[in-house]
Design a protein around this nucleic acid. Structure first.
Length: 405
DNA sequence: AATACGTGGAA
DNA sequence: TTTCCAAGTAT
């Protein structure tokens, strides 16, 4: 190891001492880190930006300040509190890990990388990060920031993900025995603020002289990534089922499509393939119009309204989350398959588009009143915010309420 | 090894 | 508008 390279951690830690970001989950200098907060922040930050996590972390720790408090919460509370953050397996694993720590480890997190790695939701990165940041263990912490910094520093131009072993080995060579947590966070701060994916600020970089990609003149080229696949388009139907209570209802008859399970319909593209009567006049209700938020769309007349919510299956897409009922999400045009009630469905002219990681979804909105079959719960429309719907369904709810006025 | 798994902000 | 990407994990 030449002298230049061995000085990388010292230079980086020196830079970090002057430039560390102030973040709510970070301990102050010379203050012990709280493993619960470190773990929670690391899980929230998986594939999620600091900007998105910051307010959610504050709310979460105000509500559940300790691992024991979190372990005592119900699944429904925790899943709802995670709503909007995405990658809901994180919340499902969070519950399991919290209860494992509370019940099997006496309320203390395992203090080693290997012990942490055994908890649900802690993979190679998170276990190393918590071990280093919360417990000071020397661990090789490699996230996307570190991958980028190291790929540039060592000019590793093998495409990801094949480059991972080489990157990890290189990261190992610069990881110090002391201040392991600071070093990990310094690498991530450097990646987030200086060694950025595009237009890296090399002139501000404390490692500029050590960086082979900078020397070669094109740091932005690294790391090389494999090409991405196109995302297929899928279609589906969201069912907005209201309880048949005594409130003024639209007089128009709506679309005479009767839903049956496993039946086949020609498709529901509004205004085209479904035999429709004239588009029904939207029901008009009061309420202020200057606020786009969901709550503002709920008028006094809406106070009595309730909609039917279900819970998604415990695994898979949006697994375990409260949701609006939907039919299957398929390549074909939407239909009324799997409707939650046998009633007349009025298909709105609006659709909801939503992009997932691996496919794009366009959803038709079917509105009806009736008696549901299957599991679910009636939820007061005025309190829909508290249901903790994933963004897709929050969008759909907003679209229905805006269409209805 | 490759794929499933969310979302919102920046360029 | 579209594309890229963010403190990844599980299978």
């Amino acid at each position: 190891m030449d002298a230049k390279r061995s000085s990388v951690p010292a230079k980086l830690l020196h830079w970090y001492d002057a430039n560390a970001r102030i973040l709510p989950w970070r301990a102050r200098p010379c203050e012990a880190a709280d493993p619960y907060r470190v773990w929670l922040s690391e899980v929230m930050l998986q594939q999620t930006t600091v900007a998105a996590v910051t307010p959610r972390f504050r709310e979460w720790t105000a509500r559940w300040p300790t691992i024991d408090a979190l372990a005592a919460a119900t699944d429904a509370e925790i899943m709802a509190a995670w709503a909007g953050l995405g990658y809901y397996a994180r919340a499902r694993n969070l519950v399991k890990a919290a209860r494992a720590v509370a019940h099997d480890h006496g309320g203390r997190f395992p203090a080693t990388e290997a012990g942490l790695r055994a908890l649900p939701g802690l993979g190679a990165y998170t276990a190393a990060a918590v071990a280093a940041i919360a417990f000071g263990e020397r661990a090789v912490v490699v996230d996307a920031n570190v991958e980028r910094v190291v790929a540039r520093l060592f000019a590793i131009d093998t495409p990801l993900p094949a480059a991972r072993p080489a990157i990890r080995a290189a990261a190992d060579t610069i990881t110090p025995d002391v201040r392991a947590g600071d070093f990990a966070q310094a690498m991530m701060d450097l990646g987030a603020t200086i060694c950025t994916p595009r237009r890296p600020r090399c002139l501000l970089c404390p490692l500029r002289e050590d960086c082979r990609a900078f020397a070669a003149g094109d740091p932005e080229r690294l790391p090389v990534k494999a090409a991405k696949k196109a995302r297929p388009q899928r279609h589906g139907t969201i069912f907005w089922l209201e309880r048949p209570v005594d409130i003024p209802s639209p007089t128009s008859p709506g679309v005479s499509a009767r839903a049956r399970q496993s039946s086949h319909h020609p498709g529901l593209v509004p205004g085209s393939t479904v035999p429709q009567t004239r588009q029904p006049e939207p029901m008009r209700v009061g309420g202020c119009r200057d606020e786009p938020g969901m709550t503002a769309l709920v008028s006094r007349e809406d106070q009595a309204r309730e909609i039917w919510l279900v819970r998604r299956p415990p695994r898979g897409l949006l697994g375990g989350m409260r949701a609006l009922p939907t039919g299957p999400w398929v390549e074909a045009a939407p239909a009324l398959d799997d409707a939650p009630a046998d009633t007349e469905w009025r298909v709105l002219p609006e659709t909801v588009a939503h992009g997932f990681t691996h496919f794009d979804l366009t959803l038709a909105l079917a509105v009806g009143r009736g008696v549901p079959h299957g599991e679910g719960e009636w939820w007061p429309l005025a309190d829909l915010e508290a249901a903790g719907l994933p963004t897709l369904f929050a969008k759909a709810a907003r679209a229905v309420m805006e269409s209805d006025r």
